[in-house]
């Protein structure tokens, strides 16, 4: 079973709560996904719509909230958002996002490292969203991140695991769980990430904007499970050279 910062998760699929057509569809889709942790964002209250509150439809006993710092452009803003999230009853869990470039929304590695260091000291359980950089993942682990969340491809692009080579290294090296996040547009993408040995995946857009979000959530849940079982079962390797050779080909020197 997946354990992050001492907490156990039966499902290795984490859900997002953005971009759904209605709170009711979101609620049903999350239920179908089987996920136990959902990301949420923090925004100013819309004073003209005081009832627009997702807390109403989400059962806090069922889902662990993972507030994100989306919108933060540097470490200072991220830390401010983190403290507001905690004050909002978000708990200590935090998906740290620092994205200064509004075009690509790619995360800033330097500000992310700075903010992680500070927030860990403040008692947060930090899960930083990062580009798939293995050394950055290790540096974040060293300063106390409880997991790392490398991106498969830029957020919202649905391009799948373009960073495969780097993510393989992160998975091989990291002590903390590796959660592949962003760009996973189809169940086959999450199956690929899970087959590689990712500990979990986070999916939002691909479920929220599907023709039928509830059925798509179920498809993603099945793909995560299939990928995980395949990883644990041990995939047969793609055949390479190793052409059959005579038993002592090249080893004539042995005595």
């Amino acid at each position: 079973m997946l354990t992050i910062a001492g907490r156990k998760f039966r499902s290795r699929l984490f859900g997002g709560t953005g971009k759904f057509s209605s709170p009711e569809v979101m609620k049903e889709a999350l239920a179908a996904s089987g996920c136990e942790m959902v990301t949420v964002a923090l925004r100013r209250v819309d004073l003209d719509n005081p009832d627009d509150d997702i807390m109403r439809v989400l059962d806090r006993d069922r889902y662990l909230f993972l507030p994100n710092t989306s919108g933060a452009r540097d470490a200072g803003e991220a830390i401010r958002l983190a403290k507001l999230a905690r004050a909002s009853g978000g708990g200590e869990w935090l998906k740290l996002e620092v994205t200064p470039d509004p075009r690509t929304l790619l995360p800033d590695p330097i500000e992310t490292l700075k903010a992680t260091e500070e927030l860990v000291k403040e008692g947060f359980k930090v899960l930083p969203y990062i580009n798939a950089d293995p050394i950055l993942a290790l540096r974040l682990q060293d300063v106390g991140a409880v997991a790392v969340m490398p991106l498969g491809s830029p957020i919202g692009t649905n391009q799948g695991v373009l960073t495969r080579f780097q993510i393989e290294i992160i998975i091989a090296q990291a002590q903390v769980p590796v959660i592949v996040d962003a760009g996973l547009g189809a169940p086959s993408h999450v199956a690929e990430a899970m087959e590689m040995g990712a500990d979990a995946v986070l999916v939002n857009t691909a479920i929220a904007v599907a023709g039928d979000p509830v059925r798509m959530a179920r498809a993603f849940a099945m793909a995560v499970e299939a990928g995980r079982i395949a990883y644990e079962a041990g995939l047969g390797a793609v055949s390479k050279d190793a052409a059959p050779s005579s038993p002592d080909d090249g080893l004539g020197f042995l005595r």
């Binding site: 997002g16 709560t17 971009k19 964002a41 923090l42 509150d53 999230a85 986070l202």
Partner: peptide
Amino acid sequence: LELIRFVGGG
């Protein structure tokens, strides 16, 4: 004053 709450997000 800043009044803030959780909203949907990924």
